[in-house]
């Protein structure tokens, strides 16, 4: 059984894994990172999106063994010291979730989108999130939240501005 060494949300894990173990099952069943849900099983819905060396991937379509030597960020690794990431905050404030199932994937895909395009238009947000499905059809508020987070993340935080 191959042994992998992988950093997940800032912590390094070493584990023996069966080659067929999916990354999403490793995260949920072995590491207890149940913040990453499993949606569709067909690489369609994006609910299981995580960042893989900083880039969004659907963790149901990657083997755990392929994460060997890589860094993974799940929704549980966002935010520091009990404070939310600006994207999480924007989703909260704009009511960008109803049932919440798509939310972890939406948030990580949105962070990835802003990494490439810090100031996306509404159209660019819709296209950038095309791999993430919300069956409550809450897209209006999701797009609004991403716009809000983009505005906020481009501003230096108040506390960081020199007096």
């Amino acid at each position: 059984m191959p042994r992998i060494r992988v950093e997940v949300d800032g912590v390094t894990y070493e584990d023996d894994v069966e080659p067929r173990l999916l990354l999403v099952h490793y995260l949920r069943d072995r590491l207890g990172k149940v913040g990453t849900p499993i949606g569709c099983d067909t690489t369609n819905c994006g609910a299981c999106t995580v960042l893989f060396d900083g880039m969004s991937v659907k963790s149901c379509s990657v083997l755990a063994v392929q994460a060997d030597g890589r860094g993974i960020t799940t929704v549980e690794g966002l935010g520091t010291d009990g404070t939310n990431h600006p994207m999480q905050r924007a989703f909260h404030e704009e009511h960008a979730l109803q049932c919440g199932f798509c939310t972890p994937g939406m948030i990580l895909a949105s962070i990835d989108l802003l990494r490439e395009n810090a100031d996306p238009s509404e159209e660019e947000i819709r296209e950038g999130l095309e791999g993430n499905l919300c069956r409550c059809t809450g897209y209006q508020n999701i797009v609004r939240a991403v716009r809000k987070a983009a505005d906020e993340m481009r501003q230096p935080a108040q506390s960081e501005v020199a007096p």
Binding site: M55, S56, V57, K58, A109
Partner: peptide
Amino acid sequence: VADPAVRHR
């Protein structure tokens, strides 16, 4: 082709 996450891999 597909979506950004799929195009990454």
